[in-house]
């Protein structure tokens, strides 16, 4: 019976396709969170596999911090267009301007400010479900989260009171104002994602591959030097994210392993120029993927706290 047998990627794929179709069938207004990062790139391929030859029956949604790598945004827009999907972008800048998000004094990262923007978009478009690319192997709090992660009317996750999830029977029932976050890649690891990208020959933004870039060292990380501030009529969006005089700039051959935004993504010293090279690096890696992200280093419960407040 060996011919009727799935390998691990095929198994993860069929599980994820099943979940995507459950979302399309059970929710009235779902959205798919697409940032252009490697995980959400896999989500798009899975959506094609779940729904073709029909159109993907949900719009793509992205929350911009305003600190994105330009390469990522270009890729995001192009990929959405290729797939004929509607891309909705909401930004932290707009939210600050209209007062729905307020930066904490002295805080440079806009990571937490994505929460009100996301919740605002969910309310604006009356989304009842958002599919995201989060994986359980990324972080300890995520390791506890369900495929169908219930959020109350404030978008909050209650880790102590999750719905039991049994077999492949998912409970997507909601009352007015509540919503669901759904994570089809829950069981995927970083390695699985790259193996899938290789198997499916998926294009990824070129910042995942090795290139030469100006960086500076801060808090044990190599952060990219942001693009210059040109429009003097506006405040510098990267204020605080630029190298200080005691943080010398160096040119380096590097790439990103995981993408948050320019302010919280550490570059890694790497010569990898192909997906095979990256897979080799992941196999040999001695630190976790999120070890390169400043947003998770804030405290041991940083992710749990953000999720309880409505984060992805």
């Amino acid at each position: 019976m060996s011919s009727y047998h799935l390998d691990h990627l095929q198994y993860l794929e069929t599980e994820a396709i099943h979940i995507m179709r459950e979302v399309a069938a059970e929710f009235e207004r779902p959205a798919l969170l697409f940032s252009g990062g490697k995980d959400s790139i896999c989500l798009l391929r899975l959506a094609e596999k779940a729904f073709r030859p029909s159109d993907i029956p949900m719009p793509f949604l992205n929350v911009e911090t305003g600190h994105e790598f330009p390469e990522l945004l270009e890729f995001r827009d192009r990929r959405a267009k290729q797939l004929g999907a509607k891309l909705i972008v909401r930004t932290v800048d707009q939210a600050i301007a209209n007062g729905t998000a307020t930066p904490a004094p002295g805080e440079v990262s806009r990571n937490k400010l994505q929460i009100p923007v996301l919740l605002g978009a969910i309310e604006e478009f009356r989304f009842d479900c958002a599919i995201g690319g989060a994986r359980r192997d990324e972080e300890k709090a995520r390791a506890k989260e369900r495929f169908f992660s219930f959020r109350d009317a404030f978008g909050q996750w209650d880790p102590k009171n999750q719905r039991p999830e049994i077999w492949n029977v998912y409970n997507g029932r909601l009352n007015q104002g509540e919503n669901m976050r759904v994570f089809p890649l829950s069981n995927w690891t970083e390695m699985d994602v790259w193996e899938y990208i290789r198997q499916e020959k998926l294009e990824v933004p070129n910042i995942y591959f090795s290139h030469t870039r100006d960086v500076f060292r801060r808090g044990g990380q190599l952060l990219p030097v942001p693009p210059p501030h040109t429009d003097a009529s506006k405040p510098d969006p990267f204020a605080g994210g630029r190298p200080k005089p005691n943080e010398p700039i160096q040119s380096m051959v590097c790439r990103v392993r995981t993408i948050a935004d320019m302010i919280s993504t550490g570059m890694i010293d790497s010569p990898a120029i192909t997906v095979d090279d990256i897979i080799g690096e992941v196999a040999a890696a001695r630190v976790t993927e999120r070890g390169t992200r400043a947003d998770d280093k804030a405290s041991e419960a940083a992710m749990e706290d953000r999720k309880k407040a409505g984060y992805f």
Binding site: H8, R136, D137, E139, K140, A141, R142, A143, K144, P159, K160, Q162, S186, N187, T189, M191, D192, E300, A301, E304
Partner: peptide, 29 residues
């Protein structure tokens, strides 16, 4: 502490909810 991912779990030294972990050997995932 590797699997007890929630703050309350570490505080109380107990496991509250199902946690999922992933590992691989050359033979299986």
């Amino acid at each position: 502490n590797l699997t007890d991912g929630l703050r309350a779990e570490r505080e109380q030294g107990i496991t509250i909810d199902v946690a999922y972990r992933y590992f691989a050997t050359p033979r299986r995932k």
